[in-house]
């Protein structure tokens, strides 16, 4: 369904935060020797833009925006974003992949309250987001936004569609779903496994306000997040962020192997890091 942007098109507005996050993800993955790298890399600009807003609640009872990583396998990306934002330490990040680490392969709030709620079994996060958004309304905190990040493959599940119907019914205008639309799922291209021909049209028909963006355009994401924050208070919002799985590592981009690849060796890491930094400078 999606015409994927080529990596580092000239009009891509790269941001140093995104480049640093992408490098942190690659290096953390290399040290851990495990993790869902491709999905984490496709999320980089989305996470950078969300954390750049700096409005997430610091704990369960605090006021602020809520984040649910429904595609829990991208926890590696989230943990690196938390470290880059100073919410967890880099020393904690370095435990990723170790036995008993609080940074589990899928988010577990009972051991890492700073991260997402418990996910990992796909399809559950949007319903939890509904509960968050409804609680914000009941508590008189209608300025709090609930952000739920889903994968496009995750939309094979039925539950997000149940939640989408209910979000409209409950008029949850503070609910924002962001689909990391990288066009891939674990077993291959969505077009070969289980495509959704018109995701935007389908959710618009369910009563959502739908936006489509280049999911690697940091500044575009940032401005869209601000633009739709306070509009249409009764209408839930969907951002379809068109991304590339494995973004930033040429031999992993759009590759099935990017889902759970072997870690890059030091030479590959150094090369990719130089490429990423050079690309960023060229754009700037």
């Amino acid at each position: 369904m999606t015409e994927h942007p080529r990596p580092f098109d000239d009009n891509q507005a790269l941001d140093p935060r995104s480049t640093r996050l992408r490098i942190t993800i690659l290096r953390t993955h290399a040290v851990a020797g495990q993790g869902h790298l491709g999905s984490s890399l496709s999320l980089v600009e989305i996470l950078s833009a969300l954390f750049a807003e700096g409005r997430f609640a610091t704990n369960v009872t605090a006021e602020g925006d809520r984040l649910v990583l429904s595609k829990g396998h991208a926890a590696l990306g989230l943990y690196c974003a938390l470290a880059e934002a100073g919410i967890i330490s880099h020393a904690t990040l370095a435990t990723f992949g170790q036995n008993g680490s609080t940074l589990e392969p899928h988010p577990n709030e009972t051991v890492l309250p700073e991260g997402s709620v418990c996910t990992g079994s796909l399809g559950q996060g949007l319903s939890i987001g509904l509960g968050f958004a409804y609680a914000s309304r009941l508590s008189g905190r209608s300025d709090e936004r609930t952000v739920v990040i889903l994968g496009d493959g995750e939309l094979n599940e039925g539950q997000p569609w149940e939640a989408a119907i209910a979000a409209r019914r409950l008029k949850l205008g503070t609910l924002l779903a962001i689909v990391d639309a990288n066009g891939m799922q674990q077993d291959g291209a969505m077009s070969d496994i289980m495509p959704i021909d018109d995701l935007q049209g389908a959710w618009a028909a369910l009563g959502w306000q739908v936006h489509t963006v280049d999911g690697h355009d940091f500044r575009g994401l940032l401005s869209l997040l601000a633009e739709i924050r306070d509009v249409c208070p009764d209408t839930p919002k969907l951002i379809v962020a068109q991304t590339v799985k494995g973004r930033g590592v040429p031999f992993l981009e759009n590759a099935v192997d990017s889902h759970y690849p072997s870690p890059l060796d030091n030479a590959e890491l150094d090369l990719i890091e130089r490429l990423l930094i050079a690309e960023m400078r060229d754009v700037q």
Binding site: V60, S127, E162
Partner: peptide, 28 residues
């Protein structure tokens, strides 16, 4: 009425909705 929601015939979504509410101090 303000503490009552009928989410229709969608049990998985109802459970997830309650999960979000419970994290915010409600007892669903």
């Amino acid at each position: 009425p303000e503490r009552y929601v009928n989410l229709g015939i969608a049990e998985a979504n109802a459970v997830g909705f309650a999960s979000g509410l419970a994290r915010r101090g409600f007892r669903p």
